[in-house]
Structures are given as structure tokens and as C-alpha cells.
Design a protein around this nucleic acid. Structure first.
Lengths: 216, 216
DNA sequence: TTTTTAAACAAACGATTGTTTGATATATGG
DNA sequence: CCATATATCAAACAATCGTTTGTTTAAAAA
């Protein structure tokens, strides 16, 4: 009996979370049933309500954990004294590593928004706001961010969207190009995204300055 | 009786499609029921199966129409003889206009993938491939694309992801920054994204050339 | 006018949804 | 060794799911 249990190594509570993330990530929150989660996690259906007080609780925990990771990354990099370029490159690097390690968790946390419940919308907006504010704080220190608030609602989402672009498209990338997603690829990916980001921001600054000149 | 009918102007079939797009876009495909669609479209539930042979048929039609629009845009710009920079700026402009006009349709077509059915995954991969190939064709003509196939699986998704970044985050943008999404905003948005894209691609070319030099 | 076809409807179908219940087994602490 | 808390389970809950049915209405074709 003990041998059987050791086949599915981790504890039931953790297995439920992982199964939920996996299924939410591939099919979407609403398309997944609790019985399907329970089956994959190898637990009884009622254990979901028992541990997470319902299906929704799984999603909350997924998002909570993702944001914990993000806060860790930004706090760590903020504490270091890096050059502007190094800071951005390192942020992108760490985000990519996180996304790669916990693709499904991150994807669910970022893209899943299956509710018209105002409380959930507010919850996600709050998380997004903290994302952006953290990024701004870190990047303002390094003078790489734009000091024009007008452009924040554009540059902010563009930043996140660019870094996550590969993961947002997910399995389709492999279908379209038939490439191997190994260490080398993700190393190149980080470098390319960082470069495009840095050059893009520089180009934007140039554009804004040019506009200012013309106004005078 | 005729007066009552004229309140909901368009034909039932079209109303179903619009209601479906609206609801799918805000809540996700699986989270929406046919009864809810029927209620919003002000038709009987069975009309959905009657006109679209089921709920899935609505989604298919949404995706079909979106892709029709995209093909139109790319074909039109490809036929014009534009400078490299103008071509990219115009593509971004038209994509933004399309997304703005039919936000829900586009969002559903791009992000919705609620199925593990292989046929549907293949269908979306095919669409994405055509997206990228069209873009490449247009941009190769203008010498703005990269001629290094190695980077296509990164730059392609980055391109799309960047252009659509604002719409992917959807209603959260308004919640986070409390801005008005009017003509002026979207004009700025197009310009900013184009600029970041052009500068980003230029920076990437520079990086690749530098790497080549170092190899020798 | 009669026949045919399409459009619209209420009602019911079986299946599946998330959650709760009450019983049973296991483990922990006094 | 007993009492108590935790963990697990099958079964049932009401609600909702997408689809189909048979019928009625309205317009077009004969």
C-alpha cells in the first residue's frame, strides 16, 4: 500500500494544484471539470473542495504563487547595482527562466480571466498594476524607463507582452516552425527580446525628443 | 409587430454571431452558454444550431471572418509600393484599426483555443503560419525583415504579440491607468508600437552583424 | 388556392457541471 | 487505549450544459 502511494510522489494537495495548472493552461479554466482534475491528480473529487474550497481556489493559488515568483525576481534585481542595460537584460533573462520552468503556472496567471465577477477583475488589475509599478521602479533607477507617464499604458503592456510572446503562443510555435526548444533556443530568445526591447525603448525616446523639438 | 422587430436591427443570424463574439471575448468560449448567447441576440436557443450547427460553429465563423480581414490588409499593403518604414507603419496602423473596430472578434480569433482536439490545434497553427508568411513576404520585399531564418520563430510571435499587446490585456488597461481609449490614444499607440518595432528590428540586425564579425 | 420551404418556438433530452453529504479509515495526542 | 482530528471515499445534490424534437407560423412557389 505504501508502495502504491509512492508512485505519485507529492502530497495530494500539491498534485491537485499541478493538475489544475496543467489543465487550465491547455484547455482554459472553464473548459476543465473538477472530475478531470481529480482524475489527473489521482485524488477524490471532493478533495478539491476540501483543500482549496472549490475549483476557483485552485486558480487563486496558482496566481498567488506566480506573483510571489515575480516579486522575488524584481526585488532581487532591484537590490543589485546594475547598469541600465544589464538590469533589463537580467530581468528578461529571469522572467524567461521562470516562464520556462513553470510555463503553465505563468500562462494561467497571465492570460486566464474567465470571470465577469468584478472582484476577480479587480484582483487581476491589482496584480497587473503591481507588476508594472515594480518594473517602473526598477527601470527608473536604471534610467531606462520613460519618464513620460503618457506612454506608460502603452509601453507597460508592450514590455510584458514582448517578453512573454513565445509562451503566449505556446505549443503552436513548435507546430509552425518545427524547432527544438532547448537551452540554446531560450538563451537566444532572451538575448533577442532584450535587444529588441532596449533598441525599441531607445528609438521611442528619440521619437519623443524629436516631437518635442518640433513643438518648439 | 414590425416596430418591435426593428429594435434589434440586423438579422438573427448576424445577431447571434455578434453576441457570441462579445461573450466569448469577455468570458471565454467555454464559460459562455448557448442560452446566454441566445438571450443577448434575442433569438431562440435552437436557432444557434439551426444557423451555425452548434456553438462551435459560431467560433469557427468568427475566426474565419477575422482571417479574411487580415488577408485583405496584407494583400492590400503588399500591392502598394511603399518604403520599408512606411510599410511597417501602415501594417501596424491597419492591424490596430481592425482590432479596434472588431476587438472582440479579433481577440477571440487570436487568443481563444479551448480545445485539445487536434484538428482545431492544426487549424490555428495553419492560420498562424499564414499570418507569419504573409508578413514575411511583405516585409522581405521592403528589406525590413530579417533574412536569418533562425530568428523567425522569435521575431514572428514578438511582432504579433507587440502589435496586439494592448488588446490582449483588454479591459485591464482601463482599470490600471484610468485613461480614455479614444482616437488620440490609438493614434499614439500605433506610432509607439511601430517605432519600437522598427527600432527593435534595427537593433537586432546590429546585434547579429556584430556577432558575425566576432566569429571571424 | 394548394403545396412547399424556411424560420421560429417551447419543451424535453441525456450528459455533465461544481459542490455537499455522511460514512469510513487513518493518524495523532492525552 | 480511548478520544479526537484529519483524510479519503462513494454517492447524491441541484443546476446547467449543448442539442434535438415536434409543432407552429409565415412567406414563396406551384
Amino acid at each position: 500500500m505504501r508502495d502504491d502511494q509512492e508512485v505519485s510522489a507529492k502530497e495530494p494537495k500539491e498534485r491537485i494544484l499541478e493538475a489544475g495548472a496543467e489543465l487550465f493552461g491547455t484547455k482554459g479554466y472553464s473548459a476543465v471539470g473538477v472530475r478531470e482534475i481529480a482524475e489527473m491528480a489521482n485524488v477524490n473529487v471532493s478533495m478539491i473542495s476540501y483543500y482549496y474550497s472549490g475549483k476557483f481556489g485552485i486558480l487563486q493559488e496558482i496566481i498567488r504563487r506566480y506573483f510571489e515568483n515575480v516579486r522575488g525576481i524584481i526585488a532581487r534585481i532591484g537590490s543589485e547595482r546594475l547598469s541600465p542595460e544589464e538590469a533589463i537584460r537580467k530581468i528578461v533573462n529571469e522572467f524567461v527562466a521562470l516562464m520556462r520552468d513553470k510555463t503553465i503556472f505563468c500562462k494561467v496567471a497571465i492570460t486566464e480571466m474567465p470571470f465577469n465577477l468584478p472582484e476577480f477583475a479587480d484582483f487581476k488589475a491589482e496584480i497587473m498594476k503591481m507588476h508594472i509599478e515594480y518594473l517602473q521602479q526598477t527601470l527608473e533607477i536604471t534610467n531606462q524607463w520613460l519618464s513620460y507617464p503618457k506612454y506608460n499604458p502603452i509601453v507597460g503592456p508592450a514590455f510584458i507582452s514582448l517578453v512573454f510572446s513565445h509562451f503566449l503562443f505556446g505549443p503552436f510555435i513548435k507546430k509552425v516552425w518545427d524547432i527544438e526548444l532547448n537551452d540554446e533556443f531560450y538563451s537566444t530568445y532572451s538575448k533577442v527580446i532584450s535587444t529588441m526591447l532596449l533598441a525599441g525603448l531607445a528609438g521611442l525616446r528619440k521619437m519623443i525628443n524629436k516631437e518635442k523639438m518640433e513643438q518648439i
